[in-house]
Amino acid sequence: MLKIENLHVNVEDKKILQGLNLKISPGETHAIMGPNGSGKSTLANVLSGKEGYDVKKGKITFLNNNLLNLEPEERAGEGLFLAFQYPVEIPGVSGMNFLRTTINSVRKYKKQKELDGVNFLKILRKKAEFIKMDENLIKRSVNTGFSGGEKKRSEILQMSLLEPKLAILDETDSGLDIDALKTVANGVNNLKNKERSFLIITHYQRLLNYIVPDKVHILSNGKIVKSGDKNLAIELEKKGYEGIK
């Protein structure tokens, strides 16, 4: 699915990622944990193609594509999804319109027929209900005036509609109360299957009680310093980042 080899990334001449390696196979769920400022969001942004990141060295392969050669929208079309740590507001654009536009853009990329209004609504209602997202919220402007929890829920709704091959969740759990956390985890677990992979970026072990990872990696100083199974997250929670090193 995804293979990152010796990735070095600078932001404004500051070295952020320094020789990161990671391999995710189809159907696997990986978690990346690391202290604030260790480069977790940087990794997510580089994978999804955001500008402003200077890739100095390394190679990223996504489903046999050289990922770094693709535009962000092409990566989305190929099935890469990023649930943002800070989803942005788009005033005046209704969620309904946004969701339909994104789905049809991705379908167009895959040379599939566009969804008409009726079928789109049918699918949307089903998915929204599952993650307990109020339809009124979807009618409002995208993320505009949403609470932190509402924004994260909306990211999960988009993920479940776009049905990506690899979903990256950047601190989707932060700022969520326990009920919201459970519905978000439910949304993810519901999407899990033999082909689909997840990269869960988180600060806390808490989320991993609900979304059980196949592998856990610890990111520090721009490198993965330790990998293990779900127990590594528990150990980390007990000892802290200092204790692990």
Binding site: S48, P72, V88, V106
Partner: peptide, 8 residues
Amino acid sequence: FYCRQRGL
């Protein structure tokens, strides 16, 4: 970037 990440 948000829109492009969603495929536009």
